[in-house]
């Protein structure tokens, strides 16, 4: 048996005898997956903090409070079903972001202004 302590709380086995299923059949028993976003304080954006399972939107907000804000980490919570998120795909990165790649003139540094122009 080969062992590792990588798992934080101490040594656990790592050998091939430990089953790992990257794509298991979705469990019938479990609730839908929600992604959780928290606004840390007024003036900041909501930031993604993790996910959880809940039977409905309201329960997801309550669970998010308990899991992600036990120490006043937030003033506002968003939850959204993971299945409802549409995202760009990492391997489309080049074509998707290409339109902004060659537009250097969108940046202030593109413009040469003499040092002695004040307040610019």
């Amino acid at each position: 048996m080969s062992l590792t302590s990588e798992g934080g709380h101490g040594a656990v086995p790592t050998g091939a005898e430990i089953p790992v299923e990257p794509r298991p059949a979705a469990s019938r028993r479990d609730w839908p997956l929600y992604e959780v976003f928290v606004r840390g304080k007024r003036g900041l954006n909501h930031v993604h903090v993790g996910s959880l399972h809940a039977p409905d939107d309201e329960m997801a907000v309550h669970a998010a409070r308990d899991v992600y804000t036990r120490r006043n980490e937030g003033v506002s919570i968003w939850v959204v079903k993971a299945a409802d998120i549409t995202a760009s795909s990492p391997d489309e990165k080049d074509p998707l972001f290409a339109p902004s790649g060659d537009k250097v003139y969108r940046h202030p540094t593109f413009y040469e202004i003499p040092e002695d122009v004040p307040h610019m």
Binding site: W31, P32, L33, D56, M59, A83
Partner: peptide
């Protein structure tokens, strides 16, 4: 778990608690 699922189904306009997709995180 089962009771909460049944409640959600009843109060979510019949929207099924479908299989969840992988996390986006």
């Amino acid at each position: 778990t089962e009771a909460a699922t049944a409640y959600a189904r009843k109060h979510d306009g019949g929207r099924p608690a479908e299989e969840h997709a992988g996390s986006a995180a």
